[in-house]
Computed example of a mutant assay.
Amino acid sequence: MKQETSAWLQTQRLLAHQQPERPRHGLSVEGELIGSIEESLVLQLGADALKQYGLDLHWRNDTWVLDGQTDGTLRLNQLAKLMRAQGLAGAWRDEQLLVCNAAGQKVATIERGAVRPLGIATRAVHLVGYCEDGALWVQQRSEDKANNPGMWDTLMGGMVSAQDSLPEALARETWEEAGLHVTELAHVAHGGCIEFSRPSDEAEGQGYMVERIDWFSALVPDVLQPVNQDGEVQRFERLTLSALEDWLVQGRFTPEASLVLASYMGW
């Protein structure tokens, strides 16, 4: 590793874990702590609007408690719809993500676009695809992506939805983003986990990202080439490890891909 790479990596690791820019307090549903919110978001939502959506968000024991007549999933998704109506949600995906308690047990599910403003922890999966000569396949994200448009990423990176197991998410995202079947790849292996906790610019800067990334590596046989299927990737490049290191230090990769690739490199 070059000296400048070492300094870059230290900075990336510091940026991965940052305190909220403003005070946040716990968010509770069904008696379980599932996220965190800023008081300003509660005030913007407004008690009257919450009531119209069948919700009551009140302060109890230093925690915001979301009550209502329905179960946790319906309550959280009503809250997500209200946030969307008021322009306080992230990009709407019509995709449900798991909502878990501190022990990792399922409490409910919620629309993906609401997780950052509510500080709900998410889980993602990345695939580092390497070639027979050691080079790596990387992708350039579409300019239409809500987050990090046009930046470079691992061969595949995506969320684990509520309906997916980790292997299912790996297979689905690998096909959607790279047009590859996991069964066609060789030496598929779980490489490790990367965790992030840092402010997010969603909901007018009131979001907070808490995420665990499980990353895998696999050999992409030379007879195969990635071809995007979902329109979220501009192009793919095959980089030597030397070129990859240069691109990382130049800041071409997303923060998530940067640390996944650094971990793959053994740094």
Rank of each mutant, 00 (worst) to 15 (best):
Q3G: 05
A7P: 00
T11V: 13
L15R: 03
P20S: 06
E21R: 14
R24T: 12
V29G: 03
E30R: 09
G31L: 10
E38I: 04
S40R: 13
L41W: 12
Q44K: 12
D48N: 13
N61I: 13
W64N: 02
V65F: 11
D71V: 05
G72Q: 01
R75N: 11
R75G: 01
L76G: 10
L82Q: 06
M83T: 14
A85W: 04
W92Q: 04
T109A: 15
P117C: 04
T122H: 03
V125G: 08
D133N: 15
M151T: 07
D153N: 11
T154F: 02
S161N: 13
S165Y: 06
S165I: 06
L166F: 05
E168T: 12
E177T: 07
E177C: 00
V182P: 05
H187Y: 08
H190Q: 07
F196E: 06
R198L: 10
Y208W: 00
Y208E: 01
R212A: 03
D214F: 01
D214E: 09
V220M: 11
V220F: 14
E232Q: 14
V233P: 00
F236Y: 10
L239P: 05
L241T: 10
L244I: 08
E245Q: 13
L248G: 01
R252H: 03
F253R: 01
T254R: 02
E256P: 00
L261T: 07
S263G: 14
